[in-house]
Computed example of a mutant assay.
Amino acid sequence: MKQTTCRIRCVNALVLAGVIATTLAACSADPGATPTTEPTTAESTSPIDRFLTPTESVPPTAYPSATNSEQVANNVVSWYESGGEEQITGVRDRSKEIYSHHAEDNWSIDFSLFFDRSKEAQEYPPIPDRKTQAAWSTALKHVRSGASDIYMSNQLGIVRGSKEVKREAHGWKELAQGVKGLKAIEARLHREFGLDPLTSP
């Protein structure tokens, strides 16, 4: 009786050991095992990163907290080189193009490029320097407001009265103020951070 009980226990122990060994082998060596839920490096990469060339970059929406002027300067340079430069020069060029018609009495002005460019710039991440960003926001506000007044006061099919004439005059002043502000921003970026625009103002 004792021998039979011992045999049963030994067989149970061997069976249990075999099951454990088989399970461990399956977990460690099975190529078809279910992968873990943690994303790999490739999976965690943003889809846009796959289409960027080594010279392109996505503008950061947040920058390291700056505690000194050197860190502020580094953040501004990063903003400028990741697309900020194109935003400033694009708005500047479109604004100057519209303003060039001021003395020509020419109303066949294409505002679409300007409004698209200025809207894109307005939605772009802010300059990581408080004073420069404040000047940039103010300049954008002036050029957008000015161009809107000029555009609305010269719509085809409207009868121009004193209200439209005043609105147009106000628009040209606003636009001129905005262009002046954009030039001041580029001057500040050069003076404070050593940054130059794509083309000379």
Rank of each mutant, 00 (worst) to 15 (best):
G181F: 03
Q3H: 10
A13H: 13
K2M: 11
H190V: 13
I8M: 06
T36E: 06
S95P: 10
I88F: 12
A25V: 11
A29P: 06
N12S: 15
T36R: 05
Q155C: 05
K183G: 15
V58P: 02
A121G: 07
L189S: 05
S153K: 09
E85M: 09
S95E: 02
T55I: 14
V179C: 11
P128T: 03
S108Q: 11
H101M: 03
F111M: 04
E174C: 08
A42G: 00
S57G: 05
H101V: 03
T23L: 14
N75S: 12
N12V: 14
H101G: 02
K180G: 13
K141L: 11
S100W: 11
R9K: 12
S153H: 06
E70S: 13
A139E: 04
V58D: 03
N75D: 07
Q155T: 02
W79C: 07
A17G: 12
D110W: 05
P35S: 11
E86Q: 13
Y63V: 12
E97S: 09
G157Q: 02
M152S: 13
D129T: 00
K141F: 15
A25K: 07
W107N: 10
K183P: 05
L52S: 06
A184Q: 14
E123S: 14
Y80G: 10
I48T: 06
S148D: 13
T23R: 08
Q155A: 08
Q3Y: 05
K183C: 10
I158G: 01
D110Y: 01
W136E: 00
V165P: 01
P60R: 10
V159H: 07
A13Y: 08
S57V: 02
A13N: 13
T41D: 14
